[in-house]
Amino acid sequence: MTAVEPDAAQRLAIATDGDVVRVRQAVRALAQGARLSLVDQTKLVTAASELARNTLIYGGGGEAVLSELTNGRRTGVRVEFRDDGPGIGDLDQAMTDGWTSGNGLGLGLSGARRLVEQFEIDTAPGAGTRVTIASWSR
């Protein structure tokens, strides 16, 4: 996903419950603009909701950076979640269905990955977490 330059970026802070809702709504608006199918919009927004909540709960807050993408005929949306929290030590374990460090269902990371076309995670203990997702029009 590095080959494509974002057209414009929008930054949203994630510090409260209400911010999670705002991230969802902003992602939805962008996904509609990028002509994602209704199902792909719903998947992307759901993934964004999971990740925004992770940023808030496990990362101690952070931000979401939303951008529109173009690649020839296709248009897309990219969302990057960043936090300066404790980071994830065992990434393989964190990406396993059903594993959770909090009291969630453990579907956050692994589930979000299944809902989007592109998924990247960059994290280390003490170095915060950065998750980038993207989906494209068909």
Partner: peptide
């Protein structure tokens, strides 16, 4: 769309 997403999410 919500149902399809939930199935994919494993929910």
């Amino acid at each position: 769309a919500v149902a399809i997403t939930m199935v994919e999410l494993g929910l």
